[in-house]
Every structure is written in C-alpha cells, then in structure tokens.
C-alpha cells in the first residue's frame, strides 16, 4: 500500500548543522497490517513516519501511496492526501487546548465542509466508541492522559482514513492504558485499517496485535521482523 524507494532525508541541508535523519530506506507497508518502527531515539523512526504520512518530503528517493508517487506532489495535493488517507496520533497528542473535545475531533474534517450536524454526530459516535461520549463538550485539558489519547484517536478517525499513523502512542501511558490502546489497534485492524506507529516500548512490539516490526538505527533499517 505504501512503499518507500531509496529514501533519504537531510535536515538543515547545506548548513553547518546538517543532519542526515534517514538514509537509503526501502520499505514496503502492506495493507491492513500493523507495523511498528522501533529503534533508539535518534534512529530516524519519527522522520520515516513523517515521510510515510506526507508530513514532510524526502530529500531524495520516492514515496508511493497506492501505487501513485506522492513525494513530488505540490503541497496542496499532499494536504489532500493527508486529509483523506491518513489519521494522525501524535506523541504529545497535539490537541488544541481551550477548545472542546468534540471540536478538536471535528477539526480535520473542517476543510472538507461537511454538513454541521452530520459532522457533529460523526464526531460524537467516534467519541462514544472510545468511551468519551459524555465528555464531548468539555475543554480538552480537563481530560486525563488516557482520555486525551483516546480523543486524539477519535480525531484521527474522523475522516475515515484507511491508514492510522501514531508516533510513540504509549509513551505517556501506563500498562493498563497501553493494553487498552493495543485493543483499539486490534479493532481498527479488524475493520480493515492499516496502522503504522513508532515505539521503543517492548510492550508494543511484543504484542500479538503487531504484524511487522521494523528495527532502525542511525537512520537506516537494520532488520524487519514479520
């Protein structure tokens, strides 16, 4: 479904603080599978995830989504792709403070201009599914850590994107909540979604819900365990 061909990423190109965050990466991500990118910090997991999710472009190499080359697309189309293909859960969740839970969940759909009540119901059903139905109108900062993460997942699901991208989703969660998260991932997979996440948490890559583990070091892939 998503493939990366000979992809490298340089940050601060041409300046003294140039960093090579990813180098010569070839990777194939299968549809309806759960893939975990793992490795020590600074190994390039997050950079790779950003390129998979069209949040940034590779310096060299190409990224394909559903067979179409997307790495060279203009920004407008990349945004469109981000909106329709991917749902994102960020490490720090990145919900907008001061705005209610349901408004946060509705945000990714706003540029599509759906009918308001339809969208609100859709957001409400996502929240209910994740056990947050009663907290929809609360400001986001009133939620606990686990609830915040579930709100972030609800937001990632609002546009029914086929791919869920998660960056260190369990970094701030205890064991029980990590288990709960993995259950949700399992449910999503059973609905046909593809999941890609980074993690250096053994609880994640040892979990039965995970199909593929990609191990990285120093910007390179050093092994793939299927």
């Amino acid at each position: 479904m998503i493939s990366l061909k000979n992809v490298s990423k340089l940050y601060n190109e041409g300046r003294p603080n140039e960093v090579c965050a990813a180098q010569d990466i070839d990777l194939e991500l299968a549809r309806n599978k759960v893939t975990v990118l793992t490795g020590p910090s600074g190994s390039g997991k997050t950079t790779l995830l950003s390129m998979i999710g069209c949040l940034t472009r590779p310096t060299t190499g190409r990224v394909f989504v559903d067979g179409a080359m997307v790495s060279g697309l203009p920004e407008k189309f990349q945004t469109e792709l981000r909106r329709t293909k991917f749902g994102f859960v960020f490490q720090r969740f990145n919900l907008i403070r001061g705005v209610s839970v349901i408004e946060n969940v509705m945000l990714p759909a706003a540029p599509l201009g759906p009918e308001y009540h339809e969208l609100r119901e859709r957001a409400q059903s996502r929240l209910e599914r994740l056990g947050l139905g009663a907290k929809a109108d609360m400001p986001i900062e009133f939620l606990s850590g686990g609830e915040t993460q579930r709100a972030a997942i609800a937001r990632a699901l609002i546009n029914d994107a086929p791919v869920l991208i998660a960056d260190e989703p369990t970094a701030n969660l205890d064991t029980v909540l990590t288990e709960r998260f993995l259950e949700i991932v399992g449910e999503l997979q059973s609905e046909g979604k593809t999941v890609v996440m980074t993690s250096h948490d053994p609880r994640i890559w040892q979990s039965s819900h995970v199909n593929t583990v990609v191990r990285m070091q120093d910007g390179r892939i050093i092994g793939v365990d299927a």
């Binding site: 407008k76 945004t79 469109e80 981000r82 909106r83 329709t84 994102f88 990145n94 907008i96």
Partner: peptide, 15 residues
C-alpha cells in the same frame, strides 16, 4: 504550534 497541528491533520495553507 497550533498552526502546525492544523496543517498536520489536513488543513492546507489556504485554510
């Protein structure tokens, strides 16, 4: 940062 978030979740520059 909020603008970064909005862009990441699918808003474009125009939005």
């Amino acid at each position: 940062r909020e603008i970064g978030i909005l862009k990441a979740i699918g808003w474009d520059t125009g939005d």
